[in-house]
Design a protein around this nucleic acid. Structure first.
Lengths: 229, 229
DNA sequence: CGTTGAATTGATTTAAGTCAATCGACGTGG
DNA sequence: CCACGTCGATTGACTTAAATCAATTCAACG
């Protein structure tokens, strides 16, 4: 676990097309990537804990990582799930330098680690980088708020329906009505703020609206019906 | 409604001590404030709508503004409440230039308006400003995620108890156990993701834990008991 | 003093969590 | 190759938290 890897071309490719670096000039990208460490992690590995000192952020290269908080009785609430190309853990760089959430691999993953100190140093000289980070934070902020609103406005089946529609847009570019869930259903349940059982029930309810589920493969026959669940 | 005002010393003072400007050099502050418009708004006035083109952000000088999203059936879910010194509406500057939420005055308010174009222009020359904005976004992001976690981990009475404890820390600096709610209970209910009735019931339950409520005045006799609701 | 909007209280309904049993897929080892 | 064990997913029965609906009460303000 946590084995350091050499950065291969594929890794570099993914990192470069990340919103963090996509807009930056090649020289700057090179400079940033020089300070990056690539490593692998096992399912359930903790990347950081709430309250722990924060000194780096991460980009997912492969696999999925969940960000969550734990309650008194050990219950956990996910506030985000990050997949290939996503940045996480950057928030603490601008706050108290302590993480306020836990980050855990949901499956075997490979990650890139960016040191705060190095990034801060580059940021001081290259406003471009600040801009990129700002864009990421803005997107994350919007996502988080949408999440709050979504939780409060919609029922479980509605949230699931919306997620499936969104997914069908990103994955099956356009009108492909068959696609794959990117991760385990239990993780999806957490992301949507549901118990796994509730997700299961939501799925079985959606079957009446033209959704077929076989394992992780989803088929939507009537997007319109889904939209007005 | 929406009457433009001259910036007075008090306004300037509040703006300068905002996290947006507190760390900036005086010359820069002056430059930014030159582009600012101060105006008053009535309770229920909309500052912007979801989907509308976004061309400025705001700082609250007095009063409270709520940020919310509306569902199909007209239901509304608050994702944040902003008071004196708070920035809102800046998110869209880094996204699509469309607002994704509605912002409405919860009571008569006075606000400062900052044009995106002017701010962007200054930002391009003054990295300090970017940093300030980044800090604000980070704080907002953290708040929003905490909100998600809080909703999912805690019951209504627990959320209320936490809010009261937090408020007693900010308001009654230190150990003052008596303080005032900063705004209407119905607004607080929205902020906490509750129906007003649920907030009311939560309050009446907390009375058993040494909380006394008279109008907007709250008294906490046993903070420890509150903490472990 | 009376009107308006907010807050409270009670009765009821609904959504979703919890608990428990079962099923299914998959990988391991006999 | 099959039996077993593990883990995720599903299903059912039940409980609980909070929304909803409706009726007052309360407070602020002209």
């Amino acid at each position: 676990m946590n084995k350091v890897l050499r950065m291969n071309l594929r890794d570099r490719d993914i990192l470069q097309s990340t919103p963090l670096m996509a807009g930056l000039n090649p020289g700057l990208v090179k400079r940033i990537l020089d300070g990056v460490v690539i490593f692998s992690a096992e399912a359930r590995d903790l990347l950081f804990r709430e309250g722990a000192a924060a000194d780096c952020f991460y980009v997912v290269i492969a696999g999925y990582v969940r960000l969550y908080r734990t309650g008194v009785d050990g219950k956990e609430a996910d506030t985000g799930v990050f997949g290939p190309g996503d940045v996480f853990g950057q928030c603490a760089m601008f706050l108290s330098d302590r993480h306020t959430f836990n980050a855990q691999c949901a499956e075997p993953a490979t990650l890139a680690r960016f040191d705060y100190s190095k990034i801060r140093h580059i940021m001081a000289e290259e406003p471009e980088l600040s801009l990129s980070l700002m864009n990421i934070m803005a997107r994350h902020l919007n996502d988080a708020r949408m999440n709050v609103a979504n939780d409060r406005l919609h029922t479980a089946p509605q949230r699931v329906a919306r997620y499936l529609l969104e997914l069908s847009h990103t994955q099956g570019d356009g009108h492909a009505n068959s696609f794959r869930l990117p991760f385990q259903k239990s993780l999806l349940a957490g992301k949507l703020g549901l118990a796994p059982e509730a997700l299961s029930r939501a799925f079985s309810l959606l079957k009446n609206s033209g959704v077929t589920i076989r394992g992780r493969v989803i088929q939507i026959s009537d997007a319109e019906a889904l939209r007005k669940i």
